[in-house]
Simulated assay, not measured.
Amino acid sequence: MSGRSVLVVGGSRGIGLEVARQMAEEGDRVAITYRSGEPPFGLFAVRCDVTVPDDVERAFAAVEAEQGPADVVIINAGVTRDCLLLRMAEEDWAATLETNLTGAYRCAKRAVRAMLRARRGGRLVFISSAVAMVGEAGQSNYAASKAGLIGFARSLAREYGGKGITSNVVAPGLTETDMTAVLGKERLDHIIAQVPLRRIAQPREIASAVRFVASDDAAYITGAVIPVDGGVAMGH
């Protein structure tokens, strides 16, 4: 088998799917996880709900059986449950943190265990958000979960850098995906007006940054937060 073994957690659509496709085009052996619906054609796909520990274990085991232990793990699974704080149910808070942050913990823990056993280093890439740095009204739960990823990833960079495992964060701004498709034109225009480049990102632009930080060219980059946000969070 040629190419690295790559797993994109949450790779069935949007940014995750574009990352998976770009890395497959580079010659990597790419697997994805998906939670619902039908998986995209042409990629090895495993159903996985990151809020269920047994699902995470089964997904990693299936990928290892298909293409060997993952050399690169991109953790992209995420949800939003937007609401102003005083209207936010505790369930909305807990569900967002459980998927976006605790789910990342489960996946990273399982990934590092296999990387250490393989003794050839590895790449962890966490998909955060510009909202983690600047905040957003109605997204306190989402912002908290995505900010948590930064501290988590940097801690792993310190813990496992000596073993050749890098741990980095890519922080996209507003990106054209299914998530943004539900925004009304007025809301979208308001957000775009705050972006110095005056447009939203395309998934391929985020994926290119992920592909770089997972590459050999980025072997000396760890604990970094790489913004791909049109300048919206500059200075943070």
Rank of each mutant, 00 (worst) to 15 (best):
M1Y: 11
M1C: 01
S2G: 09
R4I: 05
R4H: 09
R4P: 00
L7E: 01
G11Y: 03
I15F: 11
I15M: 12
I15Y: 11
L17G: 01
E18Q: 05
V19T: 10
Q22N: 02
A31V: 01
T33W: 01
R35V: 00
P39E: 00
P39K: 00
A45P: 04
D49P: 00
D49G: 04
V50I: 12
V50Y: 03
V50F: 06
V52W: 05
V56G: 01
A59Q: 11
F60L: 15
A61R: 13
A62N: 06
E66G: 08
E66Y: 13
G68M: 11
A70E: 13
V72C: 08
I74T: 08
G78K: 05
G78N: 11
V79S: 04
D82Y: 08
C83R: 12
L84R: 12
L85Y: 13
L85H: 13
E90P: 07
D92L: 06
D92W: 09
A95H: 07
T96G: 08
L97R: 04
N100F: 03
L101K: 07
T102M: 02
Y105R: 06
C107T: 14
A108V: 10
R110S: 11
R110P: 01
V112W: 07
L116I: 04
A118I: 07
A118Y: 03
A118T: 03
R119A: 15
R119M: 07
R123C: 07
V125I: 15
I127Q: 12
A130R: 06
V131S: 12
G135N: 07
E136M: 14
E136G: 08
A137T: 15
A137M: 13
Q139I: 09
Y142T: 06
Y142F: 13
A143P: 08
A144M: 13
K146H: 13
L149Y: 07
F152T: 12
A153M: 08
A157T: 09
E159H: 11
E159P: 06
Y160A: 09
G161I: 10
G162D: 10
G162C: 11
G162R: 11
I165S: 12
V169F: 07
D178I: 06
A181N: 07
L183I: 10
K185H: 02
K185T: 10
K185S: 15
E186K: 14
R187L: 13
R187C: 01
D189P: 00
I191L: 15
I192M: 01
I192R: 09
I192S: 04
A193V: 03
V195C: 13
R198H: 11
R198N: 01
R199G: 08
I200K: 05
Q202Y: 04
Q202F: 10
A207F: 04
A207I: 02
S208T: 09
S208Q: 09
V210M: 05
V210D: 02
V210P: 00
V213S: 04
A214F: 14
D216N: 15
V225W: 02
V232Y: 03
V232Q: 10
A233D: 07
H236Q: 09
